[in-house]
């Protein structure tokens, strides 16, 4: 619910530091609409050459794993070594794996 001193909705900000790289979560901001959100994100997170790409997403649209589910959700099957592709040699030049 909005009150008179509302700062707007919460939005999550993702920055791509170079073309071709993946977008990384940078933080969150308040804003009242899409244009306002992308500009606030620009003014707070990308004023010092941090990026060449910018996404904003309404925080409420992000689906997250609940904290109390994280145990069984993330537990890696460490005893099944065939699940971990650690036997391969990476070709030279592959940097973002």
């Amino acid at each position: 619910m909005k009150t008179a001193d509302s700062q707007g909705e919460l939005w999550e900000v993702f920055i791509q530091s170079k073309p071709g790289q993946s977008f990384k979560h940078a933080g969150s901001i308040h804003a009242f609409d899409k244009d306002n959100a992308i500009e606030n994100a620009r003014d707070i997170y990308t004023r010092r050459n941090e990026g060449t790409g910018l996404w904003v997403v309404p925080s409420k649209e992000i689906i997250a794993v609940a904290l109390n589910e994280s145990d069984y959700f993330f537990e890696p099957a460490t005893d099944k070594i065939y699940r971990h592709p650690t036997f391969y040699n990476l070709p030279e030049g592959v940097t973002h794996m």
Partner: peptide, 12 residues
């Protein structure tokens, strides 16, 4: 400013 983000944007 009316809220933090706008405060920073104005200073920019």
């Amino acid at each position: 400013g009316p809220f933090l983000e706008e405060d920073l944007a104005g200073a920019n």
